[in-house]
């Protein structure tokens, strides 16, 4: 009779219930803490795709200084990064490499499409070697328009991304 009570199904249900309660109990504060950590520590991967990299470099200059927001420029390896800033035009030669870089980065990772070329192809809409935007190859979180966007615009894009991370799934 006792054996009937403790079947694998009931044990499973019990543990599942316990797990649910635990999840409800700790997931919200934990998720909030994790998201808070992530949004203040966005390390962009070091990949330059086109001319917007000039303005990306200027964004870390003393006048704009993205490190105020915890964004370190010029970080070495992609394994330690969590933000892809697509700096402009993606050519057909660069596209597979960009995707590979994105694939090799650890989760969670975010994408900012910077500049008109990264969004739609921009000025190069009719060029034979340019992709019409990076939507086809990467899931974009924030679009930063401009040709090229001013550093302030890029910083605003980063703040928008931080707002977005705040409301994201923690895991």
């Amino acid at each position: 009779m006792f054996k009937d009570l403790i079947t694998p199904q009931t044990a499973n249900t019990f543990i599942g219930k316990l797990g649910d309660i635990l999840v409800k109990a700790i997931d919200q504060p934990l998720g909030y803490a994790i998201n808070w950590g992530r949004l203040w520590s966005l390390w962009p991967v070091h990949i330059e795709t086109a001319c917007c990299s000039v303005e990306f470099g200027a964004a870390s200059s003393p006048r704009y200084d993205v490190e105020r927001f915890g964004i370190i420029e010029a970080f070495g390896s992609l394994r330690q990064c969590d933000l892809v800033v697509v700096q402009g035009t993606i050519t057909r030669k660069m596209a597979p490499r960009l995707r590979l870089v994105y694939d090799q980065m650890p989760e969670p990772k975010y994408v900012i499409a910077m500049g008109a070329c990264a969004i739609t192809g921009g000025l190069y809409f009719d060029s034979y070697n340019v992709l019409p935007g990076i939507d086809g190859i990467l899931p974009v979180d924030v679009y930063v328009p401009g040709c090229p966007p001013r550093p302030e615009t890029l910083i605003q894009g980063c703040i928008l991304l931080q707002e977005k991370i705040k409301n994201m799934k923690a895991r």
Binding site: L30, I34, I47, S77, L78, R79, R97, L98, L100, V101, D103, Q104, P106, E107, P108, R171
Partner: peptide, 21 residues
């Protein structure tokens, strides 16, 4: 335990070589 994991992508586990295969 708390980090997200997606093991479906074999490319991720290749050695890092500057965006090249």
């Amino acid at each position: 335990m708390i980090s997200p994991r997606k093991r479906s992508n074999p490319v991720k586990f290749l050695p890092m070589e500057c965006g090249q295969v």
